[in-house]
Amino acid sequence: MADTAAPPTAPKSMAVPLTAFAVGGVVALLLGIFSKVHDPTLDGTTTLGYSNVLAMKTVVAVVIGVLAVGQVIGALWIYGKLPIKAPSWLGKAHRAGGTLVLLLSVFVGYHCLWSVGWETGVTDTGYHVPARTIVHEILGCIVFGAIVVKIVAVRSKRAPGWFLPLAGGLLFTLLIAAVLTSAAYYIGDNGWPSRA
């Protein structure tokens, strides 16, 4: 008679989230250091037809924010937290949406780090960098650390059950905070960005 017992599951380990948070912290720190020592330049950047890099980043950041809200709704639906049964295609759509958020975040993050860099205190021209900008810079670096944590959470079979929702919630919160400290501020001051 064949053994029909389910294969043993890997034991859950706190080492997975602890390692993920440590690596994510290192990624965030390294991005912060790079953006501080890098001389900002517009070389190698694009405006995608908008009037400037900040306008383009604003539009893409709003798209990221909308997609992030969709990701949370999708996750709640997939895990049965909404009163409607999730369709079979939702898992694939959720993964594709997450990949798109990641790619767009890397695109915006590159343009932030490369074209703007890290601004603190008073610039060479005497401009006083507002606290909102500094908070945004910190959030932007931490977002990429949180992306690392979320990828580990999605891929790990040995992480505790609370790790994936915590990683997803943390990433969502940081993304929305980054959008609010940049795109929402830009739109409030300048209106919706126009094409060049």
Results as ranks from 00 to 15, higher is better:
13 S>M: 01
55 A>I: 01
195 R>H: 09
182 S>K: 04
17 P>W: 09
5 A>K: 13
112 C>P: 02
185 Y>S: 08
15 A>V: 11
191 G>A: 00
143 V>H: 03
67 L>R: 03
190 N>L: 01
10 A>M: 14
102 L>W: 06
54 L>A: 14
56 M>V: 01
191 G>T: 02
195 R>M: 14
85 K>T: 15
8 P>A: 06
136 H>T: 01
130 P>C: 04
32 G>N: 02
2 A>V: 10
137 E>C: 05
165 P>G: 03
137 E>V: 00
182 S>L: 05
138 I>V: 13
42 L>P: 03
12 K>W: 01
2 A>R: 06
95 R>N: 12
149 V>M: 14
122 V>F: 05
60 V>N: 04
104 L>S: 14
73 I>N: 02
186 Y>N: 03
188 G>V: 04
62 V>I: 12
15 A>M: 09
171 L>V: 11
3 D>R: 07
111 H>M: 08
155 R>H: 10
19 T>D: 15
84 I>L: 07
186 Y>P: 00
137 E>H: 06
114 W>M: 11
86 A>R: 00
87 P>R: 02
76 L>E: 15
179 V>A: 12
19 T>V: 08
144 F>V: 03
53 V>F: 03
68 A>Y: 07
11 P>V: 00
63 V>M: 05
194 S>C: 03
132 R>Q: 14
29 L>A: 15
160 P>T: 00
78 I>E: 15
180 L>E: 13
71 Q>I: 10
84 I>M: 07
121 G>Q: 10
88 S>V: 08
97 G>V: 07
116 V>R: 08
173 T>A: 12
67 L>G: 09
40 P>L: 05
62 V>T: 15
22 A>I: 02
152 V>W: 12
16 V>R: 13
156 S>L: 06
119 E>N: 11
179 V>K: 06
187 I>C: 00
135 V>M: 03
164 L>H: 13
81 K>P: 00
6 A>L: 09
114 W>L: 10
176 I>G: 01
45 T>C: 01
145 G>D: 10
168 G>V: 06
25 G>I: 06
77 W>V: 04
3 D>P: 12
148 V>Y: 13
174 L>K: 07
88 S>T: 10
120 T>H: 08
132 R>E: 07
196 A>S: 13
86 A>D: 01
95 R>P: 01
95 R>F: 06
122 V>R: 08
100 L>W: 02
167 A>N: 14
93 A>G: 05
